[in-house]
Design a protein around this nucleic acid. Sequence first.
RNA 1: GGCUAGGUAGCUCAGUUGGUUAGAGCACGGCACUCAUAAUGCCGGGGUCGAGGGUUCGAAUCCCUCCCUAGCCA
Length: 695
Amino acid sequence: MSRQILVTHALPYANGPLHFGHIIEAVQTDVWVRFQKLRGHHCLFVCAEDTHGTPIMIRAQQEGITPEQLIAASATDHARDYEGFMIGYDHFHSTHSAENREHTYALYTTLRDKGHITRRSVRQAYDEQAGMFLPDRYVRGNCPRCDAADQYGDSCEVCGATYSPADLKNAVSTVTGTTPVLRDSDHLFFKLGDFETMLRQWLTDSHLQESVQAKLAEWFEAGLKDWDISRDSPYFGFEVPDAPGKYFYVWFDAPIGYIGAFAALCAKRGLDFDHWWKSETATELHHFIGKDISYFHTLFWPAVLHGGGLRRPTAVHVHGFLTVDGAKMSKSRGTFITASRYLQLLPGEPLRYYFAAKLTGGIEDIDLSLDDFTARVNSDIVGKLVNIASRCAPFIERAGGHLADTLPDSALYTRFIEGREHLASLYEARDTAALVREVMHLADLANQYVDQQKPWIMAKDPARSDEARAVATQAINLFRVLLVYLSPILPRITQTAAGWLGEDAFASWDSVETPLTSRAIGKYPQLATRLDPALVKQLVVSPATPAAPPAPAKATVKAAATPAVGTPPATKAAPVAATHQEPAMITIDDFAKLDLRAARVLECSRVEGSDKLLCFKLDLGDHQRQVFSGIAASYAPEQLIGRFVVMVANLAPRKMRFGISEGMVLCASGKAEGGPDTVFLLSADSGVQPGMKIS
RNA sequence: GGCUAGGUAGCUCAGUUGGUUAGAGCACGGCACUCAUAAUGCCGGGGUCGAGGGUUCGAAUCCCUCCCUAGCCA
């Protein structure tokens, strides 16, 4: 029975780069979605940029651009990062869109007409110079309880007290540095208390983790209070239709962005909107979020939907926070790792695997240990999983590239496929940590099987070559089953392996019922490469030296040091670093560590067994070097002989499959206009001599 | 400060309703093998289960106090 499932993860806020906190959530969601699709369900995955609120408005002002320009730039960055981690959205939208405006107005109007909206006056900090009301996080001063200096307007990080900005001593606006005054203003409130009975019922019906329910019980205990859903002008957002000068609070229209994104997908694919959003039985709605935004998604959101005449979520899946080497991500420690920083150094798939291997479906925090990351990926993916294929492929190739007609050990094959419903239930429950553990145990069994059979001995005896092929066929089939199981986590390896074994080999979860026999397979492709620990180490960057432009005065708001997955703009202040992901600033001393040299290409040839690599012999004047470079797609080797290139001469030698690479040839790379990714070799003007230093 | 979670081998984590000598992977030591990306297989060392107290014939597991970590307090 095919299910119809709509899935979202929290909207990234359009005010800063994606970091590992965003990525772990996107990976968890994407893995779940790919699993559902593999099982044959009709699963749709949408998300959107979260674009409104004071932080975006102020940030745009500081940069001298419009909010629209800011969010457009952010959307471009985010899309590139998500793509690098192979997050497969059916549609990615924006909350600053016609669809979102339409649905925000519709929900608001319905709620108002049903009497769920009320108005009352609120006293708030006001910056007279800037002419605006200040969110709590934009007021700083001394804690009223412990007198700690430079605390936010809502709580003290030193003693933990919570209060309002009016209680703060020596309060200062972080926007202008002036002293804020208190001013009254009318606001719109959503009467959450109207929905208490409904919510209590929904919480027991829906699939919430027990620990989340425990937290909710506390909130019910404290009593459900009205929710202020309006903000005063100036504000970047949607103006309230019947209250000129008032805007909807970003947190009101942000989740509605799930609906807006889906509405846009409907237009694209001709889907029936009402079927997905009006009915609670025909389709499923799943939200993946971090534990910090549980309140919004388990109380406000179902209440707004229900009051507005729409369906409530089937489930809200809450995950914990990400720590790096045991501590909160921190800019000063250099562990605030952005997605683009990672992607500059390493491919996305290993991190997908590592995150999946640690996510349990619970809300406990997940630790990214960099050493463990390298060890785990290299050992599990390369040493165990891919090893099964790469050690057996030669026996098939020697036997003419054909798999045997039958499996010599069908009992072992059965053992590999009989647990698949249990494995599926682990995916369903998002316990990919347990799933990976069990699959890796099977991988060990496969390697043990090959060790016991010793096909390399069979292969030496011409009379037994069929036996060797049979054993290899068995092992490759075991590998194929394991990769079907892991394909939601490892889409790239799966795609490469499909090119080797056949497109049908990984098409569905149940396809493993039929082993692959009697078929020709391709030449074995490199399915994965080991992570270089030196590159992993570079993920943690020491903070930039103060050569960077100083932050605007008084705007020393602390960056959201924790994964601000979701949209907490009014409580998390804007980071004031550069908009786009630039590598950290370095000093001239850092640059001097590079030994760049002009080198002449003496020889250049294609590398047997690799589509990408060229092997260079380079003349550096007093000696020669061998360097491998992955530019075969862009250059023919013969055209390079004799020309000068720029090389990094003091790069640590790296052992590759084809030999040692003793340096690196520098290229510019990127998409040429309208074209595919291309690389462009750097060269020096005529007259340069081999070995000349570049500085 | 209140609340919700977590604290188990060097590292990352499993430990189902309390029940025999607390498990796995990585790392480490030894051996084997050479088909495989210094990979694989076999064997081994290593833990007062955050601290202290209590309940029980029996506690990593239940109760109390304290310490540490993360989140929430709209």
